Amino acid sequence: MILSLLLLALIGGAALWLVLEPLRRAAPEDPDAPERTRLAAERDGLYTELNTLEDEARRPGLERRAALTLRALDGLPPASRARNPGRSRTLALAGVGVAALLTVAGALTFIPRWQLASLDAGEAKKVQAVLKLPALKETAQQTEKGADYLAWGRAAFDSANYDQAVSAYGNALKTDPRQPEALRRLGILLLTRGEQTGQQISAEDAQRAALLIRTAAQLAPEEPESQLLLGFALSRFGQDQDALTALERYRTLDPAGREADEVITAVRARLNQSDPALSLYAGSCASCHGAAGAGGIGPSLRESGLSRAALRSVTVNGKGAMPAYPKLTDAELKLLLDLMEKWQREG
């Protein structure tokens, strides 16, 4: 902290000297004055608009324009004006003070936004988490509150500081052992520790990780991440059908989520190789009813109350938006009906 203050004072002194030195002597009229005035007015207008903005969707565009305006101002040659030395020095000192305040405010508000504007959503989230991490860690260690430990753990997890995430979530569980987020994230970190360290995870640790993730899913079944991490863990243990059910549930809870796509594709491929009914279903039905029959564009087959005869009629003849499949052989139709009835029993 002291070193930072000294460095800031040194920079401020250098800036002050650079501002005051040209004022000791007269200079010719600034040829860039009209352009400088125009850019300064545009900058001030953008600042005003940003400070009073109500439509947040316009903020990134305005911030980019402000950044370009400041860049254009910085690109102009330094202005030199002949003024009264005493008055000029006073104005220069005041200008340096205002500039310092604007610089600090910009560093805390606009500059991070401009930097993040060039990143995708995932990268921007990671950068923001890294920036928040030290303060969140300090707060959690001071207050020892569960909510503060969770905030620290979340920032550490999102920024891939997994050692800190383990520490933060472990302390959160000491305050409340029924924290779904802490349970499932500790579980997945334990399960994937081998990928981070290059060491093989033991069977005991694998079972412990699975228990943490399952417990979190039971405590918070409606949270998308619970189903996502449960599906991932189940796939690691070779329980592909249960994994697919959990991952399809994740997609239902978070339709915009894409984190399960690769795992779902891999699980489907494994299932389709060993189960002809699933292979047939995947080719004709999964795009509407979900890979595990849990629903999607079309209704859930697991929640269906239709009889076998009704299922057969709808499959062969179609109904509403459901297309007909009259060319299915008797053997193929039997496979599909058996699969749908099985899902009805499972729910």
Rank of each mutant, 00 (worst) to 15 (best):
A266E: 14
S202L: 05
G347S: 11
R302D: 07
G198C: 05
T265Q: 04
P28R: 12
L306V: 00
E259W: 03
R58E: 15
A206N: 10
G75R: 13
G61P: 14
R87I: 11
D242K: 12
P85M: 14
A324R: 07
Q196I: 00
A79W: 09
Q273G: 14
L131W: 09
A15W: 06
G95P: 07
A156L: 13
Y47D: 10
E54Y: 04
A79G: 15
A165T: 12
L53I: 14
A246N: 08
A182L: 05
A67P: 13
E123N: 05
Q218L: 00
L306H: 07
P221S: 11
G320T: 13
L16Q: 05
L333A: 02
R236Y: 00
R83M: 07
R193K: 04
E341N: 13
I201R: 12
V127C: 02
L253N: 08
A156Y: 12
Q141H: 05
G106S: 13
P112L: 06
G170M: 14
A100L: 10
A129Q: 06
E181N: 09
R308C: 01
G170W: 11
T143D: 12
L219N: 09
L50N: 05
L183C: 04
Y325E: 07
A67S: 15
L119N: 11
P85V: 11
L68D: 14
I11L: 10
P323C: 07
L211M: 03
D32H: 14
E204K: 06
E144G: 03
R58G: 02
A217W: 11
